[in-house]
Structures are given as C-alpha cells and as structure tokens.
Design a protein around this nucleic acid. Sequence first.
DNA 1: TGCATATAATTAGCTTAGCTAACCAAATTA
DNA 2: TAATTTGGTTAGCTAAGCTAATTATATGCA
Lengths: 143, 143
Amino acid sequence: MPRDLATRLYFAAIHLIRKLRAEDDKLGLSPAQLSAISTLVSRGEMTLSEFAEAHGVRPPTITRLVQRLEADGYVIREESPSDRRVATVRHTSKAWTMLERGASKRAAALSQAMRALSAEETDTLEHAVEIMERIGRERIEPR
Amino acid sequence: MPRDLATRLYFAAIHLIRKLRAEDDKLGLSPAQLSAISTLVSRGEMTLSEFAEAHGVRPPTITRLVQRLEADGYVIREESPSDRRVATVRHTSKAWTMLERGASKRAAALSQAMRALSAEETDTLEHAVEIMERIGRERIEPR
DNA sequence: TGCATATAATTAGCTTAGCTAACCAAATTA
DNA sequence: TAATTTGGTTAGCTAAGCTAATTATATGCA
C-alpha cells in the first residue's frame, strides 16, 4: 500500500465516507445530492457553472442535479437579470434543516468511534479538518 | 452550516475527494473501483461477502464490481475448497502498481496545497489520518 | 437418511450520477 | 450586422447503487 500522506489521506477519507453513507440514505438523499447541498450551503449563491466547478462535475450533470434538488425543495433557481443566459442557485431553509438532521445521525453513527478518542485526538482531528476544508476549497489546476 | 466535528470531518472528506477525482480518471478507474481495490490491498484476501461489507455495498454490487476488476486484471477470484458456495478475492500485482502510479498523480495534484502547509500542519494531518484510518476500519452498527 | 431451513453468490430489472457530443440562445467582438 | 464566444440544456450512453427473486451448497434435525 502506498504510504505518502496525500494518498493515505485520500483513502482514509474515502473509506470513512463509504462507512457513513448508509446513514445518509435515511435522509432520502443520494451522496451526490448531499455533497452538492453542503457545497451550496457553505459557499452561498452561485451560477450553475460555478456550482459545477465547486461540486467537481461537468455542466450537464449540474443541470440535472439542480432540477432534482429544486423539485424536492432544497434549492431555488433564479435567472440573472444582467445576463439572461445565466442562472443562479441558492439553498432553501429546508436544505439547512436537512443538514442539521443529518448531522445528528452522523454524530450518532460515529459516536462510538468518537467517544473512544482522547481529548488530544479530538483536537488533532479538529485542526486537521480545518486544513482539509482549506485544501478542499482550493482549485486544483488541470495539467 | 452544522458545526459538529463529525459533520465537518464528513463534508471536508467529501469535498477533498471530489477535488481529486479528476486525477483518478486518468488511471482509467472509477472512484468505486479505486476505493474497492484500495480496500482489498489494505485488508488482504476476503470472501465476496466480507468484501461487500468492507466496501460498504450490497452483494449484487460486489459481484459486478469484481467481475469488472477481474476482467481488467486487478483481482483474482478463487472458489473456496472447503465451502463451494464461497468465493474469495485477492489483488494482483497490477493493482498494486496502479495504486503506486495513482499516488504520484495525487501527490502532484496536491503538491501545491501541501507545499503551503507548515511542518506542524503536516504533522497534524499525519496524526489525523491515523485516527481516520482507524475509524474507517471500525464497523458501524445499523440501528 | 432425507427433508427443511439457512447462507453465499448471482441474475434481473430498476434509478441515479457521471460523461461527451450536439444544440440553443444570449452576449460580445470585429 | 455577421461571426464568435459563452452559459446552459438535451440526447444518449456507461457504471454504480439498490431490492427481489433465483441457484446452489451446507447445515440441522426428525
């Protein structure tokens, strides 16, 4: 197994997420929908192109995702008055409420594992999450 | 945005992964295939049921995934001699080589972000990854 | 022994998420 | 004004996930 930090972080993140996915099923949202909503909530209103970039997918994928999320009441689409080609999206209060509800489910699912952590380990994780959040927001340029 | 640690860790992990996904495309493997291979490599030979559980999917999904991975030369299936219902899987050297190759791609993609980290932040991340790896291996019981 | 039940995996058939290519409509530029 | 560029959508495909039903082998018990 490759041992560089980037790779270990990557696979640790993947496996952790796959573990928790079952919990999210109970919210009635797919992983992609949940991830998209969390991006929108943390970054605020965006155009569809910006949303696609932030979510890491191609435009057609965002078009369909937003159609679904709008139909389900999690986001609102608006046409830009200045440029009629452009559409913007923002989240609804329902989206926020849903994330809150999911938070308690995930916390419950992780509570056993989390309880076993020392205060020092919790601090480490806390700090690491800040770093990961920062990296996750950065743009990685294609080569 | 909900602010408990479990949720922040979860979304930070999701967004980080989605960022790096484009890199993995170049390996010619889907995220699910890559994740499955990394699980198999780190845990060693397993039955299909165990593999499904470890990978976090239902049996039919593993059946198809393994068919694909076997056809592509990343895993080998074997029938259990003691119980003819059971099949086991293990990874090939090709799987290992591919992970190595992916590691350098990811490292390159992250290098910009990683270079910006202080030694102390790298340490924090290193330690946090160990914790995440541990949590990721634990079984989360359904309720 | 022999039948009933349990277990491991597969097959069938569905939905969602991703992609590229092709397209439409609005904005910009020559 | 015509040509080009840009933002988004449509069409059509593949892969990954699911549940329900099926097949084949093991196990348990009368």
